[in-house]
Design a protein around this nucleic acid. Sequence first.
DNA 1: ATTTGTGCAAATCCTTTGCAGATAA
DNA 2: TTATCTGCAAAGGATTTGCACAAAT
Lengths: 125, 125
Amino acid sequence: MLRKTKQREVILDILKESRNHPTAEEIYIKAKMFMPKISLSTIYRALKSLVNEGKIIEIKLQGESYSRYDYPLKEHQHFYCRKCKRIFDIDISLDGDFELPHKVEEFRALFIGVCNDCLKGGLRC
Amino acid sequence: MLRKTKQREVILDILKESRNHPTAEEIYIKAKMFMPKISLSTIYRALKSLVNEGKIIEIKLQGESYSRYDYPLKEHQHFYCRKCKRIFDIDISLDGDFELPHKVEEFRALFIGVCNDCLKGGLRC
DNA sequence: ATTTGTGCAAATCCTTTGCAGATAA
DNA sequence: TTATCTGCAAAGGATTTGCACAAAT
């Protein structure tokens, strides 16, 4: 079974506190602050096992070649801004069942467009 | 501007006729039947430009390391079967606007679960 | 004529793996 | 103890790029 290690704890903590869907590389940088000797492969291994356990989700966007990761505190969906490339959490629930001819275990929605910040002038993007 | 070439025509035609969300590699194999000398990099370049034009979409799944491509005849969403790994087209419309605080230009939904075929015995999966 | 696209091979980028030592149970 | 995890370096696989030639406008 899965063991409890400092590395995995640090990585999960970083994800719990990040609300910006970091990449493996970004998690690596942050993790190094707490554990300077941690390696990128440990990050990748931890992320993979966390995804397999279902504790975090992997987000892949059209056009981006790397994965992003998210610790979903509560069920939510995503909005991707074409301009500033940020991902926003969207708090909607799709309770209206869609009656698919399959057994649905999970639902992922991605809205794509231009975020509010960019719309009104792109001040901070 | 974008020029009209035989290679791009062949690739788009293959996508139009494929209802199984092929990878670049799979498109390459098919394209070689029509153009034996076509190269993989041409496939990638064509796919990228078609995605940029908005003519096709790129689908990336959690866990899969390559992209799949889809020519969306009509707006539809996707269902991914964990067992047989197939992607099914789902014909639902999300007309109920969600009133997001952003300008939504596009919507992508992915349902994940076990498909009907696999549920009843996995005969053909 | 000039600009964009293609094929080839080599390069790049993100991610995974092999291995020997370290650590958790 | 012993099975799993880590760090390092090296490998891997999917995608991209440089270049000279070919094709489109």
